[in-house]
Design a protein around this nucleic acid. Sequence first.
DNA 1: AAAAAAC
Length: 493
Amino acid sequence: MSDTAVTPSTATFDQFGLAPDILKAVKESGYTTPTPIQAQAIPVVLAGRDVMGAAQTGTGKTASFSLPIIQRLLPQASTSASPARHPVRALILTPTRELADQVAANVQSYAKHTALRSAVVFGGVDMNPQSEQLRRGVEILIATPGRLLDHVQQKTANLGQVQILVLDEADRMLDMGFLPDLQRILNLLPKERQTLLFSATFSGEIKKLAATYLRSPQTIEVARSNSTATNVTQIVFEVAEGDKTGAVVQLIRERSLKQVIVFCNSKIGASRLARSLERDGVVATAIHGDRTQNERMQALDAFKRGEIEALVATDVAARGLDIAELPAVINFDLPFNAEDYVHRIGRTGRAGASGDALSLCSPNERKQLADIEKLIKRPLDVQRLTVDAPVRHHHEERAPRRERSGDGRDERGSRRRTGAPSSGSFERPHHHHHRAQPVDDFFLKPYEPSPASVRKVEEAAAASAAPQKSGSKQPLAALLGGFGMPRKSTSSS
DNA sequence: AAAAAAC
Protein backbone atom coordinates (compact mmCIF):
# COMPACT_ATOMS: atom_id res chain seq x y z
CA MET A 1 0.00 0.00 0.00
CA SER A 2 2.82 2.37 0.82
CA ASP A 3 2.91 4.62 -2.14
CA THR A 4 6.19 6.13 -1.12
CA ALA A 5 8.45 3.18 -1.45
CA VAL A 6 7.45 0.05 -3.23
CA THR A 7 10.41 -2.14 -2.51
CA PRO A 8 9.93 -5.32 -4.43
CA SER A 9 13.40 -6.40 -3.44
CA THR A 10 12.10 -7.51 -0.10
CA ALA A 11 8.98 -9.12 -1.49
CA THR A 12 8.93 -12.68 -2.72
CA PHE A 13 6.32 -15.05 -4.05
CA ASP A 14 6.53 -16.94 -0.75
CA GLN A 15 4.41 -14.32 0.96
CA PHE A 16 1.18 -15.42 -0.75
CA GLY A 17 1.03 -18.89 0.70
CA LEU A 18 1.06 -20.56 -2.68
CA ALA A 19 1.61 -24.29 -2.81
CA PRO A 20 5.21 -25.52 -3.16
CA ASP A 21 4.39 -27.06 -6.55
CA ILE A 22 3.36 -23.64 -7.82
CA LEU A 23 6.32 -21.82 -6.29
CA LYS A 24 8.64 -24.34 -7.87
CA ALA A 25 7.22 -23.57 -11.30
CA VAL A 26 7.45 -19.84 -10.65
CA LYS A 27 11.10 -20.19 -9.72
CA GLU A 28 11.77 -22.25 -12.80
CA SER A 29 10.20 -19.50 -14.87
CA GLY A 30 12.90 -17.24 -13.51
CA TYR A 31 10.61 -14.96 -11.52
CA THR A 32 11.81 -13.92 -8.12
CA THR A 33 9.84 -10.88 -7.04
CA PRO A 34 6.18 -10.19 -7.75
CA THR A 35 5.36 -7.28 -10.01
CA PRO A 36 3.05 -4.60 -8.61
CA ILE A 37 -0.05 -6.10 -10.17
CA GLN A 38 0.87 -9.53 -8.91
CA ALA A 39 1.47 -8.20 -5.43
CA GLN A 40 -1.96 -6.60 -5.44
CA ALA A 41 -4.03 -9.12 -7.35
CA ILE A 42 -2.81 -12.46 -6.04
CA PRO A 43 -4.11 -12.03 -2.48
CA VAL A 44 -7.43 -10.68 -3.72
CA VAL A 45 -7.96 -13.55 -6.14
CA LEU A 46 -6.90 -16.06 -3.51
CA ALA A 47 -9.53 -14.57 -1.22
CA GLY A 48 -12.15 -15.38 -3.82
CA ARG A 49 -13.07 -11.81 -4.64
CA ASP A 50 -14.07 -10.51 -8.02
CA VAL A 51 -11.53 -8.23 -9.65
CA MET A 52 -11.62 -5.27 -11.98
CA GLY A 53 -8.03 -5.00 -13.11
CA ALA A 54 -6.48 -2.20 -15.11
CA ALA A 55 -3.04 -3.28 -16.12
CA GLN A 56 -0.80 -2.85 -19.05
CA THR A 57 0.05 -6.12 -20.62
CA GLY A 58 3.60 -7.00 -19.84
CA THR A 59 3.22 -6.08 -16.22
CA GLY A 60 2.89 -9.68 -15.20
CA LYS A 61 -0.85 -9.72 -15.52
CA THR A 62 -1.14 -13.31 -16.70
CA ALA A 63 0.66 -14.68 -13.68
CA SER A 64 -1.35 -12.38 -11.45
CA PHE A 65 -4.49 -14.37 -12.19
CA SER A 66 -3.01 -17.72 -13.25
CA LEU A 67 -1.10 -18.43 -10.05
CA PRO A 68 -3.96 -17.82 -7.63
CA ILE A 69 -6.39 -19.66 -9.91
CA ILE A 70 -4.14 -22.71 -9.88
CA GLN A 71 -3.87 -22.42 -6.12
CA ARG A 72 -7.63 -22.25 -5.71
CA LEU A 73 -8.26 -25.24 -7.92
CA LEU A 74 -5.46 -27.31 -6.45
CA PRO A 75 -7.39 -28.95 -3.63
CA GLN A 76 -9.80 -30.32 -6.23
CA ALA A 77 -7.13 -31.47 -8.63
CA SER A 78 -7.75 -35.09 -9.46
CA THR A 79 -5.17 -37.55 -10.61
CA SER A 80 -7.94 -39.82 -11.81
CA ALA A 81 -8.01 -40.60 -15.48
CA SER A 82 -11.76 -40.20 -15.60
CA PRO A 83 -12.82 -37.17 -17.63
CA ALA A 84 -15.70 -36.70 -15.27
CA ARG A 85 -13.17 -35.87 -12.60
CA HIS A 86 -11.76 -33.05 -14.70
CA PRO A 87 -14.58 -30.62 -15.44
CA VAL A 88 -13.73 -27.11 -16.62
CA ARG A 89 -13.38 -25.11 -13.42
CA ALA A 90 -11.59 -22.07 -14.71
CA LEU A 91 -12.27 -20.38 -18.03
CA ILE A 92 -10.01 -17.70 -19.48
CA LEU A 93 -11.26 -15.74 -22.50
CA THR A 94 -9.03 -13.63 -24.74
CA PRO A 95 -9.72 -11.58 -27.86
CA THR A 96 -7.13 -13.03 -30.22
CA ARG A 97 -5.94 -16.53 -30.95
CA GLU A 98 -2.30 -15.74 -30.42
CA LEU A 99 -3.04 -14.28 -27.04
CA ALA A 100 -5.03 -17.37 -26.07
CA ASP A 101 -2.11 -19.52 -27.10
CA GLN A 102 0.32 -17.43 -25.11
CA VAL A 103 -1.80 -17.38 -21.95
CA ALA A 104 -2.24 -21.13 -22.28
CA ALA A 105 1.51 -21.64 -22.49
CA ASN A 106 1.91 -19.61 -19.30
CA VAL A 107 -0.81 -21.48 -17.44
CA GLN A 108 0.65 -24.75 -18.60
CA SER A 109 4.07 -23.88 -17.25
CA TYR A 110 2.77 -22.62 -13.91
CA ALA A 111 0.67 -25.75 -13.44
CA LYS A 112 3.20 -28.26 -14.67
CA HIS A 113 4.01 -29.67 -11.26
CA THR A 114 0.37 -30.04 -10.32
CA ALA A 115 -2.26 -32.55 -11.39
CA LEU A 116 -4.34 -29.80 -13.01
CA ARG A 117 -4.88 -30.05 -16.74
CA SER A 118 -5.23 -27.13 -19.09
CA ALA A 119 -6.07 -26.71 -22.75
CA VAL A 120 -6.56 -23.95 -25.27
CA VAL A 121 -9.21 -23.71 -27.98
CA PHE A 122 -9.42 -21.12 -30.75
CA GLY A 123 -10.59 -20.89 -34.31
CA GLY A 124 -8.73 -21.33 -37.54
CA VAL A 125 -7.43 -24.76 -36.66
CA ASP A 126 -8.83 -28.26 -36.64
CA MET A 127 -11.47 -28.75 -33.96
CA ASN A 128 -10.85 -32.45 -33.47
CA PRO A 129 -7.66 -32.37 -31.42
CA GLN A 130 -9.32 -29.75 -29.23
CA SER A 131 -12.42 -31.88 -28.84
CA GLU A 132 -10.31 -34.89 -27.95
CA GLN A 133 -8.46 -32.94 -25.30
CA LEU A 134 -11.71 -31.61 -23.87
CA ARG A 135 -13.16 -35.10 -23.84
CA ARG A 136 -10.26 -36.31 -21.74
CA GLY A 137 -11.01 -33.49 -19.31
CA VAL A 138 -9.35 -30.17 -18.43
CA GLU A 139 -9.74 -28.00 -15.36
CA ILE A 140 -8.42 -24.81 -16.90
CA LEU A 141 -9.62 -23.82 -20.35
CA ILE A 142 -8.27 -20.88 -22.32
CA ALA A 143 -10.34 -19.84 -25.34
CA THR A 144 -11.41 -17.29 -27.84
CA PRO A 145 -15.18 -16.80 -27.65
CA GLY A 146 -16.30 -18.04 -31.05
CA ARG A 147 -14.59 -21.39 -30.99
CA LEU A 148 -15.62 -21.94 -27.39
CA LEU A 149 -19.28 -21.51 -28.33
CA ASP A 150 -18.70 -23.88 -31.21
CA HIS A 151 -17.47 -26.49 -28.75
CA VAL A 152 -20.42 -25.82 -26.48
CA GLN A 153 -22.75 -26.42 -29.39
CA GLN A 154 -20.95 -29.61 -30.30
CA LYS A 155 -21.27 -30.58 -26.66
CA THR A 156 -17.53 -31.04 -26.45
CA ALA A 157 -17.30 -28.31 -23.83
CA ASN A 158 -19.42 -28.07 -20.71
CA LEU A 159 -19.24 -24.85 -18.77
CA GLY A 160 -21.67 -25.85 -16.04
CA GLN A 161 -19.00 -26.24 -13.39
CA VAL A 162 -16.92 -23.15 -14.02
CA GLN A 163 -15.93 -21.54 -10.73
CA ILE A 164 -13.62 -18.85 -12.03
CA LEU A 165 -13.99 -16.77 -15.17
CA VAL A 166 -11.30 -14.45 -16.52
CA LEU A 167 -12.06 -11.86 -19.18
CA ASP A 168 -8.65 -10.83 -20.46
CA GLU A 169 -8.35 -7.66 -22.56
CA ALA A 170 -12.06 -7.14 -22.03
CA ASP A 171 -12.11 -3.75 -23.73
CA ARG A 172 -10.63 -5.29 -26.81
CA MET A 173 -13.23 -8.01 -26.83
CA LEU A 174 -15.98 -5.41 -26.74
CA ASP A 175 -14.27 -3.44 -29.50
CA MET A 176 -14.27 -6.54 -31.60
CA GLY A 177 -17.97 -7.05 -31.16
CA PHE A 178 -17.72 -9.99 -28.82
CA LEU A 179 -20.41 -8.72 -26.47
CA PRO A 180 -23.15 -11.06 -27.74
CA ASP A 181 -20.80 -14.03 -27.56
CA LEU A 182 -19.69 -13.02 -24.10
CA GLN A 183 -23.26 -12.74 -22.96
CA ARG A 184 -24.06 -16.16 -24.33
CA ILE A 185 -21.06 -17.67 -22.58
CA LEU A 186 -21.82 -15.88 -19.33
CA ASN A 187 -25.32 -17.29 -19.38
CA LEU A 188 -23.90 -20.79 -19.51
CA LEU A 189 -21.86 -20.30 -16.37
CA PRO A 190 -22.97 -20.89 -12.80
CA LYS A 191 -24.12 -17.69 -11.13
CA GLU A 192 -22.03 -18.64 -8.16
CA ARG A 193 -18.54 -18.00 -9.37
CA GLN A 194 -15.56 -15.68 -9.23
CA THR A 195 -15.08 -13.27 -12.11
CA LEU A 196 -11.89 -11.41 -12.99
CA LEU A 197 -12.07 -8.70 -15.60
CA PHE A 198 -8.91 -7.17 -17.03
CA SER A 199 -9.05 -4.17 -19.28
CA ALA A 200 -6.70 -1.50 -20.49
CA THR A 201 -9.36 1.13 -19.94
CA PHE A 202 -12.49 1.41 -17.86
CA SER A 203 -14.86 2.79 -20.43
CA GLY A 204 -18.55 3.15 -19.84
CA GLU A 205 -19.19 -0.12 -21.62
CA ILE A 206 -16.67 -1.96 -19.52
CA LYS A 207 -18.20 -0.55 -16.37
CA LYS A 208 -21.61 -1.67 -17.54
CA LEU A 209 -20.32 -5.16 -18.26
CA ALA A 210 -18.72 -5.25 -14.83
CA ALA A 211 -21.86 -4.00 -13.14
CA THR A 212 -23.87 -6.77 -14.78
CA TYR A 213 -21.56 -9.70 -14.27
CA LEU A 214 -19.25 -8.93 -11.36
CA ARG A 215 -20.07 -8.94 -7.69
CA SER A 216 -18.63 -6.08 -5.67
CA PRO A 217 -15.32 -6.28 -7.45
CA GLN A 218 -12.09 -5.06 -6.03
CA THR A 219 -10.52 -2.52 -8.36
CA ILE A 220 -6.83 -2.98 -8.98
CA GLU A 221 -4.99 -0.41 -10.98
CA VAL A 222 -1.27 -0.48 -11.29
CA ALA A 223 -0.10 1.67 -14.13
CA ARG A 224 -2.43 4.33 -15.38
CA SER A 225 -3.93 2.74 -18.39
CA ASN A 226 -3.10 5.49 -20.81
CA SER A 227 0.45 5.91 -19.71
CA THR A 228 3.40 4.60 -21.58
CA ALA A 229 6.38 2.97 -20.02
CA THR A 230 9.24 5.31 -19.25
CA ASN A 231 11.79 2.77 -20.37
CA VAL A 232 10.50 3.03 -23.91
CA THR A 233 12.08 5.82 -25.96
CA GLN A 234 9.50 7.23 -28.32
CA ILE A 235 10.47 9.06 -31.46
CA VAL A 236 8.29 10.19 -34.33
CA PHE A 237 9.90 10.59 -37.73
CA GLU A 238 8.36 12.89 -40.25
CA VAL A 239 8.62 11.18 -43.57
CA ALA A 240 6.89 11.29 -46.91
CA GLU A 241 4.43 8.47 -47.40
CA GLY A 242 6.44 7.16 -50.30
CA ASP A 243 9.63 7.06 -48.28
CA LYS A 244 8.22 4.91 -45.52
CA THR A 245 9.54 1.59 -46.76
CA GLY A 246 13.01 3.02 -47.22
CA ALA A 247 12.72 4.60 -43.81
CA VAL A 248 12.00 1.25 -42.18
CA VAL A 249 15.02 -0.32 -43.82
CA GLN A 250 17.14 2.64 -42.85
CA LEU A 251 16.03 2.59 -39.22
CA ILE A 252 16.69 -1.13 -38.95
CA ARG A 253 20.15 -0.76 -40.44
CA GLU A 254 21.24 2.49 -38.83
CA ARG A 255 20.17 1.43 -35.41
CA SER A 256 21.28 -2.15 -35.85
CA LEU A 257 17.90 -3.38 -34.69
CA LYS A 258 18.19 -7.10 -34.29
CA GLN A 259 14.46 -7.65 -34.29
CA VAL A 260 11.52 -5.38 -34.75
CA ILE A 261 7.76 -5.54 -35.07
CA VAL A 262 6.52 -3.20 -37.76
CA PHE A 263 2.87 -2.24 -37.41
CA CYS A 264 0.69 -1.42 -40.40
CA ASN A 265 -2.92 -0.34 -40.48
CA SER A 266 -4.05 -2.77 -43.12
CA LYS A 267 -3.56 -6.41 -43.95
CA ILE A 268 -2.61 -5.71 -47.53
CA GLY A 269 -0.21 -3.04 -46.42
CA ALA A 270 1.45 -5.49 -44.05
CA SER A 271 1.88 -8.10 -46.76
CA ARG A 272 3.25 -5.55 -49.17
CA LEU A 273 5.72 -4.18 -46.70
CA ALA A 274 6.95 -7.64 -45.73
CA ARG A 275 7.58 -8.34 -49.38
CA SER A 276 9.38 -5.05 -49.91
CA LEU A 277 11.56 -5.56 -46.86
CA GLU A 278 12.56 -9.02 -48.02
CA ARG A 279 13.51 -7.51 -51.29
CA ASP A 280 15.74 -5.09 -49.48
CA GLY A 281 17.46 -7.88 -47.66
CA VAL A 282 15.54 -7.79 -44.39
CA VAL A 283 14.25 -11.19 -43.34
CA ALA A 284 10.60 -10.37 -42.85
CA THR A 285 7.24 -12.03 -42.65
CA ALA A 286 3.70 -10.79 -42.22
CA ILE A 287 1.16 -11.67 -39.57
CA HIS A 288 -2.47 -10.67 -40.01
CA GLY A 289 -5.98 -11.96 -40.16
CA ASP A 290 -5.94 -12.96 -43.80
CA ARG A 291 -3.17 -15.45 -43.25
CA THR A 292 -4.03 -18.93 -42.13
CA GLN A 293 -3.72 -19.71 -38.47
CA ASN A 294 -0.89 -22.06 -39.31
CA GLU A 295 0.99 -19.29 -41.05
CA ARG A 296 0.31 -16.91 -38.19
CA MET A 297 1.68 -19.32 -35.66
CA GLN A 298 4.68 -20.13 -37.79
CA ALA A 299 5.46 -16.47 -38.28
CA LEU A 300 5.26 -15.77 -34.57
CA ASP A 301 7.28 -18.83 -33.61
CA ALA A 302 9.99 -18.07 -36.16
CA PHE A 303 10.13 -14.52 -34.90
CA LYS A 304 10.43 -15.67 -31.30
CA ARG A 305 13.21 -18.03 -32.30
CA GLY A 306 15.03 -15.09 -33.85
CA GLU A 307 14.89 -16.40 -37.39
CA ILE A 308 13.07 -13.35 -38.61
CA GLU A 309 14.24 -9.76 -38.32
CA ALA A 310 11.02 -7.94 -39.00
CA LEU A 311 7.55 -9.17 -38.11
CA VAL A 312 5.17 -7.01 -40.11
CA ALA A 313 1.86 -6.99 -38.32
CA THR A 314 -1.60 -5.55 -38.16
CA ASP A 315 -3.13 -4.85 -34.80
CA VAL A 316 -3.74 -8.55 -34.37
CA ALA A 317 -0.32 -8.41 -32.74
CA ALA A 318 -0.79 -5.10 -30.96
CA ARG A 319 -2.02 -6.42 -27.67
CA GLY A 320 -0.65 -8.74 -25.11
CA LEU A 321 1.93 -10.58 -27.14
CA ASP A 322 5.05 -11.13 -25.13
CA ILE A 323 8.22 -11.32 -27.12
CA ALA A 324 11.29 -11.43 -24.93
CA GLU A 325 13.88 -8.76 -25.46
CA LEU A 326 12.22 -7.08 -28.37
CA PRO A 327 14.42 -4.02 -28.82
CA ALA A 328 12.09 -1.94 -30.93
CA VAL A 329 8.70 -1.41 -32.47
CA ILE A 330 8.18 0.59 -35.62
CA ASN A 331 4.85 2.13 -36.56
CA PHE A 332 4.82 2.14 -40.33
CA ASP A 333 1.40 3.73 -40.07
CA LEU A 334 0.17 5.64 -37.07
CA PRO A 335 -2.86 3.83 -35.71
CA PHE A 336 -6.27 5.40 -36.23
CA ASN A 337 -7.12 4.56 -32.68
CA ALA A 338 -4.72 6.30 -30.32
CA GLU A 339 -5.12 3.59 -27.71
CA ASP A 340 -3.67 1.11 -30.13
CA TYR A 341 -0.49 3.16 -30.14
CA VAL A 342 -0.06 2.51 -26.46
CA HIS A 343 -0.61 -1.18 -26.97
CA ARG A 344 1.66 -1.45 -29.96
CA ILE A 345 4.64 0.18 -28.31
CA GLY A 346 3.97 -1.91 -25.24
CA ARG A 347 5.42 -4.84 -27.19
CA THR A 348 8.87 -3.44 -26.50
CA GLY A 349 10.56 -2.47 -23.27
CA ARG A 350 8.97 -5.36 -21.45
CA ALA A 351 10.04 -6.71 -18.09
CA GLY A 352 11.98 -3.57 -17.32
CA ALA A 353 14.14 -3.72 -20.42
CA SER A 354 14.56 -0.62 -22.53
CA GLY A 355 13.07 -0.32 -25.96
CA ASP A 356 12.54 2.04 -28.85
CA ALA A 357 9.18 2.97 -30.29
CA LEU A 358 9.85 4.52 -33.66
CA SER A 359 6.89 5.91 -35.53
CA LEU A 360 6.71 7.11 -39.10
CA CYS A 361 4.38 10.01 -39.60
CA SER A 362 3.47 11.27 -43.03
CA PRO A 363 1.88 14.68 -43.54
CA ASN A 364 -1.59 13.18 -43.71
CA GLU A 365 -1.20 11.47 -40.35
CA ARG A 366 -0.89 14.60 -38.27
CA LYS A 367 -4.28 14.14 -36.75
CA GLN A 368 -3.43 10.67 -35.53
CA LEU A 369 -0.25 12.06 -34.00
CA ALA A 370 -2.19 14.78 -32.22
CA ASP A 371 -4.65 12.20 -30.89
CA ILE A 372 -1.83 10.08 -29.54
CA GLU A 373 -0.16 13.02 -27.82
CA LYS A 374 -3.45 13.97 -26.30
CA LEU A 375 -4.01 10.45 -25.00
CA ILE A 376 -0.59 10.02 -23.48
CA LYS A 377 -0.68 13.61 -22.29
CA ARG A 378 2.69 14.61 -23.55
CA PRO A 379 4.23 15.79 -26.79
CA LEU A 380 6.33 13.33 -28.68
CA ASP A 381 9.80 13.96 -29.95
CA VAL A 382 9.32 14.63 -33.64
CA GLN A 383 12.33 14.46 -35.93
CA ARG A 384 12.69 14.82 -39.61
CA LEU A 385 13.97 11.69 -41.22
CA THR A 386 15.86 12.05 -44.44
CA VAL A 387 15.60 8.81 -46.26
CA ASP A 388 18.78 8.19 -48.18
CA ALA A 389 18.54 7.53 -51.83
CA PRO A 390 18.10 3.81 -52.29
CA VAL A 391 21.37 2.11 -51.64
CA ARG A 392 23.25 1.42 -54.76
CA HIS A 393 25.38 -1.35 -55.95
CA HIS A 394 29.00 -1.25 -55.11
CA HIS A 395 30.14 -1.73 -58.63
CA GLU A 396 28.09 1.12 -59.94
CA GLU A 397 30.51 3.78 -60.89
CA ARG A 398 28.32 6.71 -60.19
CA ALA A 399 26.16 7.31 -57.22
CA PRO A 400 22.54 7.42 -58.28
CA ARG A 401 22.16 10.43 -56.05
CA ARG A 402 21.37 12.91 -58.71
CA GLU A 403 24.35 15.13 -59.06
CA ARG A 404 22.58 17.61 -61.24
CA SER A 405 25.92 18.50 -62.69
CA GLY A 406 25.01 18.40 -66.30
CA ASP A 407 21.95 18.06 -68.40
CA GLY A 408 23.23 15.12 -70.38
CA ARG A 409 23.23 12.99 -67.26
CA ASP A 410 19.66 12.89 -66.22
CA GLU A 411 18.80 10.40 -68.88
CA ARG A 412 19.32 7.62 -66.39
CA GLY A 413 17.29 9.41 -63.82
CA SER A 414 14.33 9.56 -66.11
CA ARG A 415 14.73 5.92 -67.00
CA ARG A 416 14.57 5.01 -63.38
CA ARG A 417 11.36 6.81 -63.02
CA THR A 418 9.68 4.92 -65.76
CA GLY A 419 7.02 2.73 -64.33
CA ALA A 420 8.22 3.39 -60.84
CA PRO A 421 5.49 3.30 -58.26
CA SER A 422 4.45 6.47 -56.56
CA SER A 423 5.83 4.98 -53.40
CA GLY A 424 9.15 4.55 -55.09
CA SER A 425 11.29 3.62 -52.18
CA PHE A 426 12.38 0.22 -53.30
CA GLU A 427 14.07 0.99 -56.50
CA ARG A 428 17.24 -0.80 -55.66
CA PRO A 429 18.07 -3.56 -53.33
CA HIS A 430 21.40 -2.95 -51.74
CA HIS A 431 22.73 -6.44 -51.57
CA HIS A 432 25.01 -7.54 -54.31
CA HIS A 433 23.61 -10.99 -54.41
CA HIS A 434 20.19 -9.55 -55.08
CA ARG A 435 19.58 -9.80 -58.73
CA ALA A 436 18.63 -6.47 -60.16
CA GLN A 437 15.15 -6.62 -61.56
CA PRO A 438 13.34 -3.92 -63.36
CA VAL A 439 10.97 -2.21 -60.97
CA ASP A 440 8.04 -3.29 -63.05
CA ASP A 441 8.77 -6.93 -62.46
CA PHE A 442 8.50 -6.40 -58.77
CA PHE A 443 4.87 -5.56 -59.12
CA LEU A 444 3.93 -7.89 -61.87
CA LYS A 445 5.66 -11.04 -60.86
CA PRO A 446 4.05 -13.21 -58.25
CA TYR A 447 5.57 -13.16 -54.85
CA GLU A 448 8.68 -15.25 -54.52
CA PRO A 449 9.37 -16.33 -50.98
CA SER A 450 12.83 -16.06 -49.54
CA PRO A 451 14.86 -19.25 -49.19
CA ALA A 452 14.45 -18.97 -45.45
CA SER A 453 10.68 -18.80 -45.79
CA VAL A 454 10.61 -21.73 -48.16
CA ARG A 455 12.68 -23.81 -45.81
CA LYS A 456 10.41 -22.95 -42.92
CA VAL A 457 7.25 -23.88 -44.72
CA GLU A 458 8.71 -27.13 -45.95
CA GLU A 459 9.80 -28.01 -42.46
CA ALA A 460 6.41 -27.20 -41.06
CA ALA A 461 4.68 -29.15 -43.79
CA ALA A 462 6.86 -32.14 -43.05
CA ALA A 463 6.30 -31.80 -39.33
CA SER A 464 2.54 -31.54 -39.45
CA ALA A 465 1.45 -34.47 -41.53
CA ALA A 466 -0.52 -32.45 -44.03
CA PRO A 467 -3.58 -31.46 -42.02
CA GLN A 468 -4.99 -29.44 -44.88
CA LYS A 469 -8.04 -30.92 -46.40
CA SER A 470 -9.87 -28.35 -48.39
CA GLY A 471 -8.41 -26.44 -51.24
CA SER A 472 -4.89 -27.61 -50.63
CA LYS A 473 -3.78 -27.23 -54.16
CA GLN A 474 -2.38 -23.76 -53.68
CA PRO A 475 1.10 -22.98 -54.83
CA LEU A 476 3.75 -22.37 -52.27
CA ALA A 477 3.66 -18.66 -52.85
CA ALA A 478 -0.02 -18.56 -51.94
CA LEU A 479 0.60 -20.63 -48.85
CA LEU A 480 3.26 -18.23 -47.80
CA GLY A 481 1.69 -15.02 -47.65
CA GLY A 482 -1.45 -13.72 -48.97
CA PHE A 483 1.44 -12.05 -50.68
CA GLY A 484 1.00 -12.93 -54.28
CA MET A 485 -2.15 -10.96 -54.63
CA PRO A 486 -3.81 -11.20 -57.95
CA ARG A 487 -3.03 -8.09 -59.88
CA LYS A 488 -6.58 -7.37 -60.71
CA SER A 489 -9.50 -8.76 -58.89
CA THR A 490 -11.17 -10.94 -61.40
CA SER A 491 -12.58 -12.90 -58.56
CA SER A 492 -16.14 -13.38 -57.55
CA SER A 493 -16.95 -11.10 -54.68
C1' DA B 1 -11.04 3.78 -42.13
C1' DA B 2 -9.30 -0.79 -40.37
C1' DA B 3 -8.54 -4.59 -37.59
C1' DA B 4 -10.13 -9.01 -35.10
C1' DA B 5 -13.19 -13.44 -34.44
C1' DA B 6 -16.87 -19.62 -35.69
C1' DC B 7 -18.19 -22.62 -39.42
